[in-house]
Design a protein around this nucleic acid. Structure first.
Lengths: 236, 236
DNA sequence: TCATGTAAGTTGCAATACACTACTAACTAT
DNA sequence: ATAGTTAGTAGTGTATTGCAACTTACATGA
């Protein structure tokens, strides 16, 4: 089986078989006008030139130490940002997924960009960037490759997480009010939540703790208590 | 390294960059003695020769039309079985994961083999196969590569699914009694469930329906009604 | 044929989690 | 001081689940 017997150079399995064209795709989401939005790039090159797609890039085994690093590099190169909240979404691969190669494999990641930090700049091979309501992109048949279904999955998984109160603390600012937290969840879920249930669920689970003394005294009304994530319960 | 750069042909991105050594790993689980077990193979070749690992194989872009097909092919070649219940688990990749290649990527799948059909035969490059309680394998530091953490993840995800009553109908026989169904869930979860709650949860969600007329009249006691999955609610 | 044993399946109750509604609290501006 | 606005709380009914006790249906053997 293993042909180690006659050659000078050992033909490792890694060399014996052709490997798939492997890419990273990024479903970068954020919140704009109280809606979940996703970032699309207009493709500057073939295939699907001119069409909108998720930003992505080729996995570079000479540059990337692992998959997450690859995703961060792609984010930096294409968008000029770092992604604090980054989770693997799915791997999808088949022949005929991408005309550039006989077999194309993509590892898709999903991310949330904090509200303040939304300023990605179109980088290499991207003509323009735009934020699109995630539900629109999920239903848009004109999006390149199979990226529309990646968006669909990304939205579904993210909503599921929020529904279970698995909160994106990596994404949220260090301190926040409960009203802000709720607004964030509502935007992601796409529907309103009840204030009192929300709060009780949050503190039954001890997800957050008040920052002693700190209140947000913005306007002409009762100031809001600032909270921060609790170290203990919410691992990661 | 792909040595095609100086030729007349257009250097597509697929050819310009070296691609990772890409494999499929299978976390095949089943139930034995009322416990969740996972299938390990003893490696017949380096690296990690003699160690136990998840069965796996190289992705063959010439043979596999997509990732799932690749997983099925690997199952057939290595184990001699088909996997009715098959779901993607995770993709993991980095430099230094596998000494055979400068950069190794694995797409891991998890599967459940029906109780009856447990008879995988050691195939190519596997010296022996054994079923190990999944929790043991998840905690075993001697397992090759990062496969122990793949097992850990596989078990966690599967339990989570069962906890939500997302039942593995692809895995279950066509007809079953509720007692059997419950025993299956208990084995996977690793703890007992309350009979009446379990049944109420099941039929509030209309997950199954009785097969008219069919009862299992095994022993010297009340015969059990046979059930089958409901088409409507539980897609896939 | 009828009591007996065993597993299948049901019923009732308490505890919990949650949605909904209405309420109170704290601040600024006038 | 009062009005206005948002932060935060309390009470109540309903659905879901866990626990325990119960009934049902069969084969067996006296």
């Amino acid at each position: 089986m293993n042909a180690m017997q006659n050659v000078s150079e050992t033909p490792t399995p890694a060399r014996r078989y052709p490997m798939p064209f492997t890419r990273i795709e990024l479903a970068v989401m954020s919140i704009a006008s109280d809606r979940l939005v996703v970032l699309l790039g207009k493709r500057a090159e073939a295939p699907h030139k001119g069409k909108w797609a998720l930003p992505g890039g080729v996995l570079r085994i000479d540059l990337d130490s692992d998959l997450e690093a690859a995703a961060q590099r792609v984010a930096t190169e294409r968008l000029g940002v770092e992604l604090p909240f980054l989770r693997q979404l799915v791997a999808t691969g088949s022949a005929r997924r991408d005309p550039r190669a006989p077999w194309a494999l993509s590892i898709a990641y999903r991310a949330l960009l904090p509200l303040g930090a939304i300023d990605p700049q179109a980088g290499k091979r991207i003509e323009a960037l735009k934020w699109v309501p995630a539900d629109d992109a999920a239903a848009d048949a004109n999006i390149a490759f199979d990226h529309s279904s990646l968006v669909r999955l990304s939205v579904a998984v993210t909503r599921d997480e929020i529904g279970k109160l698995d909160l994106p603390f990596d994404y949220l600012p260090e301190k926040f009010t409960l009203v802000e937290l709720q607004a964030c969840c509502e935007a992601i879920l796409g529907h309103a939540l009840d204030k009192s249930s929300f709060r009780r669920r949050i503190d039954d689970r001890r997800l957050v703790e008040p920052v002693p003394g700190e209140k947000l005294t913005g306007g002409a009304f009762r100031p809001a208590q600032m909270y921060r994530p609790r170290r203990s319960a919410s691992g990661k």
